[in-house]
Design a protein around this nucleic acid. Structure first.
Lengths: 330, 330
DNA sequence: CCCAGTCATGAGCATCTGCTCATTCCGCCG
DNA sequence: CGGCGGAATGAGCAGATGCTCATGACTGGG
C-alpha cells in the first residue's frame, strides 16, 4: 500500500475528501456515494484505501502504565484468550497486589450468577480475594481444586481462598478436606472415593473458570515451603525435567506432563481436568521463574494470563529466544 | 468532554483497552462486549467516549493544496450543498483554469445520462468546457439559459459554451438565438413567444443543473465589456443597490432582486427559475468582487460554489465581518 | 426517611457496513 | 483482430452499528 506522497494528485484529493466527510463530518457511505457520484462499495473501498495508505490515521493513546503491546505479543505467541500485564511495582508485595487486583478485576467482569470457579493454592492466588469486589451480589461458587498443604499459611490454602472469594461476592464455597499430596497412590485412590473429596473434585472439574497459580521447582519453591515436598523430592522432579506445576501437576519445559510418582499421590484436578474448564486463569507475580510459566503455558490449558510487567518481559525474551535455538537453560 | 489526563485511572484504562481492541485489532463491538463482560450498547458508549475524550484520535491528512477548512466554513455559513476551493495560482488565467477544472470535475461526477444543464455566459464558465472530459460518453443536454451578448468573444457566449460542453461528452446542445438584453419589455415579451427562444428557455427552466458565473457592477464588468450595458446603465444599477448578477438578474448586497427596467428587458432564466433548478453551480474565479458573490449567495439559489482560494478567503472575511457590523462597503 | 430529578443501563429496531460473487472492462498476448 | 487473464465494478445479503426508549439505580433535597 503506497504512502500518501506516492499517491497521485487526484487520488490523494479524493481519498482526503471522502475520508474527511466520513470521519470528520460523520456522513454515511451512502450519502457520500451520492455526493461523489460513486457506488457505495466504491466509497467503502476508498475508505479502506485511505486507512491503508495513512491518509486516515487512527491512533489510540494508551495510558503509559498499560502495556498493551506486551499483552498482545503474549496473547498471540501463546494463543491465549486474554493477557493482562499489571504495572510494575517497586517491592514484591506491592507487585503481588497489583497482579491480584488485575486478576480480581478480570473475575469481576467475567463471572456471572451460577459461575463455578475452581481455585488453587498459592501466594499469588491468595491475594486475589482482597481485591475481589463485584459491583453487586454474585451467586458464584468457589471450589477448591486441590487439597491443602501441611504448613501453608491459612490465606494461601485453596479452602481459605475459596471461602474468602465467596464471602466477597455473596456466593458460596465448597472446600475439600484433604491434603494436596498423600503418602502413596493407594491412599490417594482411597481418598478420591470419599465423598468429602470426590464431591468437591467433581464440582471443580465441572467449573467454568479456574483460578490458579504456577509453582516452581527450586529448593525454596512453594511446595517445599509448605511442606508438601522435601528438598530431595523436588530435586528428583527437577532432574526428571520438571520446570513448574499447576495444581500440583508438574510439567517440563515443553509443557509435557511428568508422570512421576508424585503425580500419583496428588489430590486435585489433573491437567486433563483443566482442559475441560472453559476459562483457566493463571496468576503470576514476581518470583516465579519464567521457565515454569513457559512450561505451563505450553500445556495449552491456559486461557487467561495475569502477570506482572517484569515477568511478562522476561517471558517474552525467553519465548523469543526459543524460536532461534532450543532452550536448555534460562 | 474531559481530556485523557482528566480521566480516572480505571476509565482511561478501560477506554484504551476497548479502543485498542476495536480500532487496532478490528474486533466487533459484540465480541468486545463479551470479552469485557459488558452490554454491546455500553461498548458503543465507551467507544463514543474514547473518541470524544481524545483517547482515540482519528485524523485525516489532507494534501496541502486542498482547503477543506475553507470549504467547510463556506458550506456551513451559506448553507451550500457543496463548496470546492481551487488551489491558488500565480496569474489570473491559470487561476481561472484551475477553477474551471474543478467545476468540470464536479460536473463529470454529477451528470448522468439524461441530465439537462442550463448554461450562462462569462469568462469563468467559458473555461469549463476545456476541462470537461467525462470518462465515458454522456447523454446530457446543455442549453443556453440566457441570450448572447453583442460584443462577447465567442467562447464566453452561452450558446458556444453549451455547444462545446455537448461536444466534450457526446451530448447535445440547445442554443438560443436571441440577445441577452433587448431594447424594451415589449420586445422581450415578443421574443419570449418565439419558439426559438421559448423552447430553449423552457428546457433551461426544467434543467437539473445550472452552470453559471457571477457578474459585478463596476464600469469594467462583463456586461459593459460585452456591450450589454453602457457605463451609464451599470451606474444606475449600482446606484439602485446592485452588487452583481446571475444570468443577468441583478441583486443587492442582501440577495434581494432588483426590479430595475433592465430586468424587464432580460432574455434568460429568472431567479425564480433558478430556484426550481435542482443544482445551481456557481463558478467564481479571480476578479470577481466578493460583494457580488455575497449578494448572489444570499439569494439562496446557489447549491454548489466553485471558487478560487483568494476569493474564498476574501468572501469569508467579508461574511465574518458582516456578523458584527452591517456591511456597507467592502 | 422518603421522594423527585437525574443519570446510567440494556432490549429492540432501523439503518449502515463489510463482504461475496457474478459481471464487465481493460490490457495483453497470440 | 480475436481471445484470454486480471483487475475493477456494483448488486445483494448477513451481520454490525447507532439510536431510541422504557426501566431501574443513584443522589441530593425536603
Amino acid at each position: 500500500m503506497p504512502s500518501p506522497e506516492e499517491l497521485s494528485h487526484d487520488e490523494f484529493e479524493l481519498l482526503a475528501r471522502v475520508a474527511t466527510r466520513y470521519y470528520g463530518d460523520g456522513l454515511t457511505q451512502e450519502t457520500l456515494a451520492r455526493e461523489f457520484g460513486l457506488s457505495r462499495p466504491k466509497v467503502q473501498r476508498l475508505l479502506d484505501r485511505a486507512r491503508g495508505t495513512g491518509v486516515v490515521d487512527i491512533r489510540v493513546s494508551a495510558p503509559p502504565w498499560l502495556h498493551l503491546d506486551l499483552e498482545r505479543e503474549l496473547r498471540e505467541r501463546f494463543e491465549l484468550q486474554e493477557v493482562i500485564v499489571a504495572p510494575a511495582r517497586p517491592d514484591q508485595q506491592a507487585q503481588r497486589e497489583e497482579v491480584a487486583r488485575a486478576a480480581a478485576r478480570f473475575l469481576e467482569r467475567r463471572l456471572v450468577d451460577g459461575s463455578v470457579v475452581a481455585v488453587s493454592h498459592g501466594r499469588d492466588t491468595g491475594e486475589v480475594p482482597r481485591f475481589f469486589r463485584p459491583r453487586q451480589r454474585l451467586d458464584a461458587t468457589f471450589v477448591s481444586a486441590m487439597g491443602g498443604s501441611p504448613l501453608a499459611d491459612a490465606p494461601t490454602n485453596p479452602n481459605e481462598i475459596a471461602r474468602r472469594m465467596a464471602d466477597r461476592c455473596g456466593g458460596r464455597a465448597i472446600v475439600m478436606y484433604a491434603p494436596a499430596y498423600v503418602g502413596n497412590a493407594e491412599m490417594r485412590d482411597e481418598l478420591l472415593r470419599h465423598v468429602a473429596v470426590a464431591d468437591p473434585l467433581r464440582r471443580a472439574a465441572g467449573a467454568s473458570v479456574a483460578l490458579v497459580g504456577i509453582g516452581g521447582t527450586d529448593d525454596a519453591c512453594t511446595m517445599v515451603r509448605t511442606g508438601c515436598f522435601s528438598v530431595e523430592e523436588i530435586r528428583r522432579l527437577r532432574e526428571a525435567g520438571a520446570v513448574g506445576d499447576v495444581l500440583g501437576n508438574y510439567v517440563d519445559i515443553d509443557g509435557a506432563r511428568l508422570d512421576s510418582p508424585e503425580t500419583a499421590r496428588l489430590v486435585g484436578l489433573s491437567i486433563d481436568d483443566l482442559h475441560a474448564v472453559d476459562t483457566v486463569v493463571v496468576v503470576v507475580s514476581e518470583g516465579e521463574k519464567p521457565r515454569a510459566v513457559l512450561g505451563v503455558l505450553r500445556t495449552g490449558v491456559v486461557d487467561v494470563l495475569v502477570v506482572d510487567e517484569g515477568n511478562a518481559r522476561f517471558l517474552l525474551d525467553v519465548a523469543r529466544g526459543v524460536e532461534t535455538r532450543p532452550m536448555t537453560e534460562v
